[in-house]
Amino acid sequence: MKILVVEDDAETAEWLRRGLSEAGHTVDHAADGRDGLFLASDGGYDVLVVDRMLPKLDGIGLVKALRAAGVKTPTLFLTARAGVGDRVEGLEAGADDYLGKPFAFAELLARLNALARRPPLSAEPTVLRVADLEMDLLKRSVTRGGQRIELQPREFRLLEFLMRREGQVVTRTMLLEGVWDFHFDPRTSVVETHISRLRAKLDQNGAAPLIHTLRGAGYVIRAP
């Protein structure tokens, strides 16, 4: 992926550049909002990583200007201020995701991957498939190998969240936010417990496991 990092703190910018490069991405860097806007509007980036507080033009202004100019590149806000109000303001300005500092690098990687591969809204599928697992979003039903699997509403949402991101790493925080709407860490094993229950329901009768745990990163659903 081609990623533009707009970050004024040189050390953080270097850390991001190196980490993203090591993960196989091409990284450009802008140190202030105006340069960032200039580079981003030139286009060609798969995703933007924008610090909230920037000299010359702050992150909100940058994203607003981009969206006004019709540039729809997915954007992730990085910020030291991750209060509810700040997050809402950022999303309203046109950002697609929001990550509070400090964060784990794996979290950033997972979110950037999810952002870049977000399917266009017009092509919303009605059936999701991973190997022989099938989810019908209209009938709200799940089958594996033709066998119907009964899921609780929350389990259904959890599975849908994973299946929409087939092959991508989904972090614990992403699940808490996306499935439970919890924007803080409830410090319980709720995600783990729900995942293990879901696994038990999906992998009946010795079927090959579909949900995999990536230690220190999160979960991924993919064909065995």
Binding site: R154, W180, D181, F182, P186, T188, S189, V190, T193, R197
Partner: peptide, 13 residues
């Protein structure tokens, strides 16, 4: 409801 659901597994454990 949501909070109860989040903590149900932990209580069960």
């Amino acid at each position: 409801e949501s909070a109860a659901e989040v903590y149900a597994p932990a209580a069960e454990e």
